[in-house]
Nucleic acid binder design. Sequence first.
DNA 1: TTTTTGCCTTAACAATTTGATAATATAACA
DNA 2: TGTTATATTATCAAATTGTTAAGGCAAAAA
Lengths: 230, 230
Amino acid sequence: MHSILRMSTVKKILIADDEPDILEIIQYNLQAEGFEVITAKNGNEAIEKAKRSLPDLIILDIMMPGKTGMEVCNLLRQQPAFKNTLIIFLTALSDEGTEVKGLESGADDYLTKPISPKVLVSKVNALFRRFSNDGPKVLKVGDLEIDREKYMINFKGNDIVLARKEFELLALLAGKPGKVFLRNEILNTIWGTEVIVGDRTIDVHIRKIRQKLDLDCISTVKGVGYKFEI
Amino acid sequence: MHSILRMSTVKKILIADDEPDILEIIQYNLQAEGFEVITAKNGNEAIEKAKRSLPDLIILDIMMPGKTGMEVCNLLRQQPAFKNTLIIFLTALSDEGTEVKGLESGADDYLTKPISPKVLVSKVNALFRRFSNDGPKVLKVGDLEIDREKYMINFKGNDIVLARKEFELLALLAGKPGKVFLRNEILNTIWGTEVIVGDRTIDVHIRKIRQKLDLDCISTVKGVGYKFEI
DNA sequence: TTTTTGCCTTAACAATTTGATAATATAACA
DNA sequence: TGTTATATTATCAAATTGTTAAGGCAAAAA
């Protein structure tokens, strides 16, 4: 039942905790709800698996060997890919201070141990209901359709395949047609503040988009940046 | 909470301090207020990241290895891009002299260590309330429309393309119709204090604007400067 | 595992635009 | 009229972007 109804949008959840029992309890309950679950036993593993699987939600234990949940959270939030990922902290301390700190460090909610499966499941569902942009993530501008979910472009009925960076760049520009995006703005949004790439990288991606779309929709504003317009 | 706050324009704040603890404290408190925070561990990093991310506010520790906060401030202020960026100094010395020097060197406010998170947050909010120039980026004067975001000029329905300097110059003059801008004023605003250009450079740009607009909207005040009026 | 594929970045060079200057002309003003 | 400040124009260097090809690397396939 679930499986069919949710086919299109099965949410991926990553859980990180060093206690195997807790990991199992959470995993069992979330899988029973129809979520796809990925687990990690420590902070570093969490980061790796998060990067690999790009989950919709990450549940992080605060106390973990290696990297704490908060450290993981901060590190992930610095990357563009995780700017909008939901993050929940898990803490044994019902300590007020920790709770506040957790939210400060960029988490969307927190859970205290011992965990009640009902509370867990309802919080998770509530978060998805509240924040998941399940709406049609299709952006239409003229004859161009940009499907952020499927990572696909359709122009006049023809599907066009763009690589990830190309897609993100086009989606960014087309998100505000007419607005000139400064090169720095583009770098910050797509590459983040930590990564540094060469001067010509943006140009090359722009070139590929122009080429694949075979449509003069991105114009250069010399000395300023690029803008999308039909 | 993230996701929702991000909806509108989230203010970007860059913090530069060589003490990791202070950096962290400030970061936590500002993130809790919903600001986007970028950090730097020294003066040079601060300059790099400032250029890259163009923050709305920069918080600079005075005492830093490499470049001091004041040096960073002075360097940034010389550039047109940072003429209107808010800058706050952070100092351990509640020394009067330093404070005054700080404000002289172009900072908008200062904070003394040890830092009270409440004071910090309220100062930051106060500054944004007072100076936030989030106004609409379209300037309309008569039949002329200047769209700073789209980098476009529209006159009586016709789009006009100006080069960057021309655009900036027109935008500056049209920003206060009737006001006479001294040549020095123009040089400082558009070229910055570090760049030195010849006497005739402004004239040539003015000429190009007049030509492209085909409209007698910039008048010369001999011996003084230029003004925009319809 | 090994191989293959394709993405991302970079380097190198070409093409283009911009912006500054010099030289000269014109206008404003004493 | 002579002096000063601005207008105009053409020119050239510098800054910026366009283009192509090649290599590193990681994911996917064999």
